[in-house]
């Protein structure tokens, strides 16, 4: 399969990445190779095989419903690029 720079651009948009034309071209070419390689899985017959999404074998860990603070707001906002001490600030969402 050949993946076009346009298709790459669409996916990049979903991932909030802005790639220039040169990068789109390069990525498209690389992705072609990589995806073609990934498609070799298609040759394997996996009928009836239950997908394994995680190696975890134990039961659902559950938490008791008790509220307990673990930090202060100042700590939460300490790394914020833009804040007024109360909120995280971003450009206006239209």
């Amino acid at each position: 399969m050949t993946i076009s720079p346009d298709a790459v651009a669409k996916v990049a948009k979903l991932a909030k990445l802005r790639l220039d034309d040169a990068k789109l071209e390069r990525f498209a070419g690389q992705m072609d190779d990589i995806l073609a390689y990934m498609e070799t899985l298609g040759a394997l017959d996996t009928t009836g095989v239950e997908p394994l999404y995680s190696p975890v074998g134990h039961a659902t860990p559950l938490r008791a419903d008790t509220a307990a603070p673990t930090c202060t707001r100042d700590q939460i906002l300490a790394n914020a690029p833009a804040t007024d001490g109360q909120f995280f600030i971003v450009p206006k969402i239209v």
Binding site: V8, V11, A15, K16, L17, R18, L19, F27, M31, L35
Partner: peptide
């Protein structure tokens, strides 16, 4: 994200999204 992430990371994010 485009400035902060390097090319390998961007490549994997794009393929992973795909």
């Amino acid at each position: 994200r485009s400035t902060g992430f390097g090319p390998e990371v961007q490549r994997r994010i794009v393929i992973g999204t795909y």
